[in-house]
Every structure is written in C-alpha cells, then in structure tokens.
Nucleic acid binder design. Structure first.
Lengths: 87, 87
DNA sequence: TCTAAATGTGTATTATAGTAAACAATTTTG
DNA sequence: CAAAATTGTTTACTATAATACACATTTAGA
C-alpha cells in the first residue's frame, strides 16, 4: 500500500494540533513557551509547520498528553513484520 | 489518568525501532544513511536515543512507512476533546 | 474607537544537531 | 583463527534550531 502522507504534511499537522490544543486550554504562545521552558519564537515556528528538535516536539507532546499515544503507535509498529507477509 | 511514559523513553523506543527495522531489512547504518541522505553518525546517534531534528525523525519514519501511522495518531488526537469530559 | 493582548517577523547571538574523516572496538563470516 | 564488515567514538567544522529583544500587525475587549 502506498503511503500518501508527506513529511511536510506531518509537520503541518503537528503545528495545527499544537495551536488547536493550546487555544482549547486558553493559553497564549507565551504561556505555553513558559510552561515548557521554551521561547515563544520556538512555539511560533513549530505551530507554523517548521522544523524543530525532537525534544521540542516531545515537550509539547508531553504537555498535551500525546506521549502515551505516540508510544503506543511505536509499540504497534515494533511488532509488525513488514518485510514480507509470511504467506 | 497519569501518563507514565517519559520523553526519554520515547526517544529510546524510537532508536530501538529504527535499529530493529533497519536490521530486518538487512541494512547497515551506512546503507540507511545513504538512502536518506544523512550521515552514519546521525543514524548512530538516533538509534542510541539521542536528540535529533524532526526532519531526521520523519525521514526515517518515511523510509520505514511509519508516516501514515503517525499521521493517524495525530488525527485521532485532533478530534479528542481533552479539556473536560462533557459530563 | 482605541486600547491591550496576542501573534507574526526581523536581527543578532548562542547552543547544538549534522557532516566528514579517521580510528578503535566489536561482530560476522570465510 | 583471520579477515572483513559493522558499529561505536572522537575531533574539527558547518548548518540551523533555539534564544532574546524589538517592533509591526492582527485580534479581542472595554
């Protein structure tokens, strides 16, 4: 099966999700930055789909409780035998 | 519900998963690095659970077809109303 | 409206991820 | 065991993510 999702789309979606959740919590970019010990500029860049470090992504993920979901996705991939089907 | 997974654990799991899948494809770190236009050092660091950029993570994810899975996890989080339960 | 908060941009600087090359240590294979 | 391949580590350098500050623009509230 073809994977139609691009790297750029994932980055954009991550940024959108951050913005959406931040606003749902009625936090400003400044509020979130302070809570995560990051600069507002880093939040701004992330929400607009730019590149970031894994630590930044995971800090944000942790704050909005996405970490368990991410970890589960990884564990599911781990058990998948994706070279060839056995039959 | 408490989120018991730490940022460090997610990074470690990402690295382990990369190593596991790379070996399943019988690729060396060098092979993977060349395929993704990254240095072997970057692969080495990633597999040992160090920090990286989102682009690096997503290049690796794309190569092993994790992108769709990641994107779906994000879309699931998007629709979740996680402030208060409605009742 | 007009004021204030929040967001988007810009510049300069710092911190660090990424690269390239070499070499040691380890693992695999003949 | 010996040779080869792979992996782990170091050093010097480059590229860029992150910071701090300022300021313009946009969005909400009084």
């Amino acid at each position: 099966m073809i994977n139609a999702v691009s790297i750029k789309e994932v980055k954009t979606k991550l940024g959108e999700l951050c913005k959406q959740k931040r606003q749902a919590y009625e936090m400003s970019q400044e509020d979130l930055a302070k809570a995560l010990d990051l600069s507002r500029f880093t939040i701004q860049k992330f929400e607009s789909g730019k590149n970031a470090t894994l630590d930044t992504v995971l800090k944000i993920a942790h704050h909005f409780d996405w970490l368990e979901s991410f970890y589960q996705a990884l564990k599911n991939l781990e058990s998948t035998n994706d070279i060839d089907s056995l039959y």
